[in-house]
Design a protein around this nucleic acid. Sequence first.
DNA 1: GCCAACGTTGGC
DNA 2: GCCAACGTTGGC
Length: 138
Amino acid sequence: MAYWLVKSEPSAYSWERLVKEGKAGWDGVRNHQAAANLKAMKVGDRAFFYHSNEGLAVVGIAEITKPAYPDPSDKTGKFVMVDLKPVAPMKTPVALTAIKAEPKLKDIALVKNSRLSVQPVDAAAWKLICKMGGVKPE
DNA sequence: GCCAACGTTGGC
DNA sequence: GCCAACGTTGGC
């Protein structure tokens, strides 16, 4: 299983809304690197849900329920989207400041390439962030 | 609300 | 194909 991190501005699409609706189509990605990550996702992969701009924290864990398919909102037909569902909220949201303060996490994309909206997370970072958030890595 | 970082666009 | 101008993202 692979691990990822997806970002959303809470004003655009929040974790609370994902929980309420039970699933989401992750569309609107218009960056080739992010799109390549979407294409690499498999059903069952896990993704941290990160609130950008407001909140600035990993707030929950989601699971991929449908692999990449063409994003209907993209007129060029080049970009893709996936579907995902909520798995569990973080017991304690893991703030960006806490991630930056952790030396083991200094190389993750969230810190190094903050503008990338869909990022891979390695297993070690996944476990550590789960631990920081008070949830069991699964 | 500002600004730095980055990606994209378009003129040459 | 280069590079300046512009737009967008996201932290602060």
